[in-house]
């Protein structure tokens, strides 16, 4: 069954239905929350992985959009600008899943795509603005 990742943005005042429950019960989609930051009165973000049949995706996304949630396909890779990057390692400090780490010699970045949840913490942390997400 296809699996896709979505980047969800919730408006600040959202009397949100339990969306993952509805996605599972009403649309037969298996939700897996990779990252979520939702606080009352603030814009919320969720990185959601859905597994299901093709038609169900479309219906599920329509449901989310109807609830006022902005749905975008999530990033699938990060790009590191070699010219800008000074290998300071600050991105590794904020990478919770441990996808970006300093290599064995301590002076090179190693990126493990499988561990990345595309949370953008590295993008924000990079003082050289050398990291970008790609879709």
């Amino acid at each position: 069954m296809p699996r896709k990742r979505f980047d969800l943005t919730f408006p600040p005042r959202q009397a949100t239905k339990p969306i993952t429950y509805h996605l599972a019960r009403d649309f037969d989609l298996v939700p897996n929350i990779l990252r979520a930051q939702i606080q009352p009165g603030q814009e919320g973000r969720m990185l959601l992985e859905l597994t299901g049949a093709k038609g169900d995706f479309e219906a599920g996304i329509a449901f989310l959009e109807n609830e006022g949630v902005t749905v975008k396909p999530a990033a699938t890779d990060i790009r590191l600008d070699d010219e800008l990057c000074v290998r300071c390692g600050l991105c590794t400090a904020v990478c919770r899943p441990g996808a970006l780490v300093m290599g064995e010699t301590g002076d090179e970045l190693v990126f493990d795509k499988d561990k990345c949840v595309y949370c953008e913490a590295c993008v924000v942390a990079c003082p050289r603005r050398a990291v970008t997400l790609t879709f």
């Binding site: 000074v86 300071c88 390692g89 600050l90 400090a93 300093m102 301590g106 002076d107």
Partner: peptide, 8 residues
Amino acid sequence: GPISSLKV
């Protein structure tokens, strides 16, 4: 995580 670049 480091902030000072060992490479440079």
